[in-house]
Amino acid sequence: MSNTDDQGPIWEVFLQSKPGLAHKHVGNLHASDKEMALQNARDLYTRRKEGTCIWVVPFDAIVSSTPEDDEAFFEPSNDKAYRTPTHYVLPEGAKHI
């Protein structure tokens, strides 16, 4: 593996499919700088009018939780059903609430 085989760092690609919607992760690619990352993202992920805006983010800039965090992060919400509307008992016949 020589240095000249270098594929460049990984960039994660997010695509907004139409105005008004949130950007959604669609995949990633390799590129040596941010302009190349954006252009490659255009070629690789929008060959069929898939989007109106592209974000590229260096992979290293993303901080992710890990499966070991699951318990501490996500389980506390299991016993907090009162955060959802279906938890509440409404009088018979109440409407628009």
Binding site: D5, S32, M36
Partner: peptide, 12 residues
Amino acid sequence: GEWVRKAAKAYA
């Protein structure tokens, strides 16, 4: 394509 990879890296 080696020169392309080299140039891209040097530019970055």
